[in-house]
Amino acid sequence: MDQELFNRFVKCAVDTLKVDAAQVVPAARFKEDLDADSLDVVELVMALEEEFGLSENIPEEELAEVTTVGQAFDIVVSKL
């Protein structure tokens, strides 16, 4: 895992989800561990798209499958 990329991911998660950086680990589950519902995840993904300058948006079908930080991070990396 690219630590520099992940640090940028953590910063987005801290800003949008208002959680501690230490909570944002690959195994963390959005709903159970980060108290983030589906709209929170949408907002996080929007922030990630902006932070990483993704030219294509992450489609809803892909988002629906995401339950953990690690999964979300992998999707972002795959779009870079």
């Binding site: 709209l39 949408v42 907002e43 929007m46 798209e49 902006e50 948006n57």
Partner: peptide
């Protein structure tokens, strides 16, 4: 400024 995709879900 940034397009529809950036409009908040809230």
């Amino acid at each position: 400024e940034k397009g529809e995709r950036r409009v908040s879900p809230f």
